[in-house]
Design a protein around this nucleic acid. Structure first.
Lengths: 185, 185, 185, 185
DNA sequence: TATGAATGAGATTTCATTCAT
DNA sequence: CATGAATGAAATCTCATTCAT
């Protein structure tokens, strides 16, 4: 792993452990085993570094959310794929998941980055529209429907991460079902 | 309002406006019209102050969530009351609502405080159990059911606050319906 | 005991326990059970308070050093009386003794107070002169002789206070003898 | 001289000039020509800095006290060497000498440091024991004997530093004689 | 006379950032 | 490329002192 990656990774770890609030450059340097000079070679200041961590996390999540997505499948299959991908991303990359969740509304992250293109969101919105047209989903503001589904998935992952309950096959199935039913006619 | 309350209130306002990141004691002092000595008489350091803001917000929300709750009503009426209370709290106290949402997973808030007793949560859990026993709600981990409902409500309020959609009678009705259906049999 | 005395006494205690360095008005108030207003009624500022503590200690010591001093006694008896008085003062009032020793060279105590009239010193100096005239004490700068005696006594008391050795009849006798011999012909 | 030494040295100078009471970090920074960051890189707080000054002074004195000490010499020669070394240290390094004297009983200096190993003290104690065995010194607690000698030397140097008297060949000789006689049989 | 909440000047301390090596 | 000692602006925090009650 390159020094640059060491720095990004150390930063994410520390944010997860202590909160951005108390993450200092000195702590990052120590954790990443680099000198301050090195760090400022790669990132011109702390804010840029944190924004780069955010950007990398968003890119990583962006890829994960569309993994194996096949537009040719049935509405339900596509719906299921998108939700499962989010869930798996949350479980396999909890630090990135929580960081994105926490900082997507923070002024510390540049507006450009926060509004970064999100293919999966667009796909999901049109999928909802399609479902409504077909009479499968209840007619309502697609953003509202999307927000409902999104709220469920994020909440379920966060609940699991802080160990409110187990999350294996059965629970995953039940969660998917809840999402589907929540916006069904 | 006491000086102490002025300080708490100024702190919440500033966190809402600029993010905890950039809230300094100096800004709080100025906004609350108090000297630094006064501030440190009431709160021994910045972390304690922020934790007290969190505590006050949680207490405020705790009361709001149980407003007009009547154990004698039907399951659906009780369910609706609790969800509407959360929604109204979010709409009438968005700063507190968002602050609680952001920092309930943050290490900056003491674990004790984050896990602070929450009567409405207990009531909601037993309401879910009751519904499952009666065959109205789907049998599953009550914490999972609860997290689903909670995820929807929080997400919907946040979406409204950041102006993704309007939230009037119709949308509120649809949201409530989504919650109910999400965990129905 | 009056409030004023409570304050003086609390101050001396705290200086003894923590060093003037870390004695704050707040600690004094708490220890003396008085409000800040009361304290500043009696003493116009912290420096004046500490100086009053010093003054009281010096006065107390001044009296103790001349207790039972009888100009009619023999040279040795007078010598012994003065030395024993110092020793007893140190043992019975260690806080005052150490405070005087530590702060007699500190700029925090006003020059006037530090140079405060010291009858016992004058008496001791003339006693030394008398001894030299009589050929009992070695001829040398009387201040040097005095400083030798004084150094021994102070050192012995401090050593006892920090528990380097016991100090009962035998040791007291040996110390007196050492003083006498140190400046004898 | 390293920055660290600049800081230690500036601190000692200021304590000597104004008393620890009024020495601030800002004054030290200015005198030592370093930024605050530099100072806190080397010393994590003011108390630690002052303790390090004390430690350095003790180490410096420790070396000075044993200069030219030759175990092969006669009892008197060894005695004289140790006393003269202390005297010379006091005269050549008055700031360190007075600082050590003032703070060896102060709670501001950590107990560990105050009780720091002191080779010259051990040597002096065994020298006293040797003298007692040979019937030269009076039989008494060796710590008491030591404290008597120590008290004389410290007192004499302090008296000279604050200009109570001159201290040339004659006075030095008289002081040494006083020490020797004070504990003789 | 006694109180203690409020104050703010000034102290300590932090930490992102620079730059010579 | 990599380093880390040095920096100082800006943050946190302390504490003697005031004053209305």
């Amino acid at each position: 792993m390159s020094k640059r990656d060491d720095i990004l990774s150390a930063t994410l770890d520390l944010i997860d452990e202590e909160g951005l609030q108390s993450v200092t450059i000195a702590k990052i340097m120590k954790r990443a085993n680099v000198g301050s000079g090195t760090l400022f070679n790669y990132f011109s200041n702390k804010e840029e570094l944190v924004n780069e961590v955010y950007k990398a996390a968003r890119q990583h999540m962006g890829e994960a959310l569309l993994r194996n997505y096949n537009p040719g499948l049935s509405l339900y299959e596509r719906f299921k794929c998108l939700q499962l991908n989010r869930l798996h991303f949350g479980l396999s990359s909890p630090k990135e998941f929580l960081f994105i969740d926490s900082y997507s509304y923070s002024p510390y992250i540049s507006a450009d980055l926060r509004k970064m293109e999100d293919a999966s969101r667009e796909i999901m919105l049109s999928l909802i529209e399609e479902g409504q047209t077909q009479g499968i989903f209840k007619e309502m503001d697609t953003h509202l429907s999307h927000q409902i589904i999104h709220g469920i998935m994020v909440s379920i992952v966060k609940g699991f991460i802080i160990q409110k309950y187990p999350l294996d096959g059965l629970q995953v199935q039940q969660t998917l079902e809840a999402c589907w039913k929540a916006i069904r006619v």
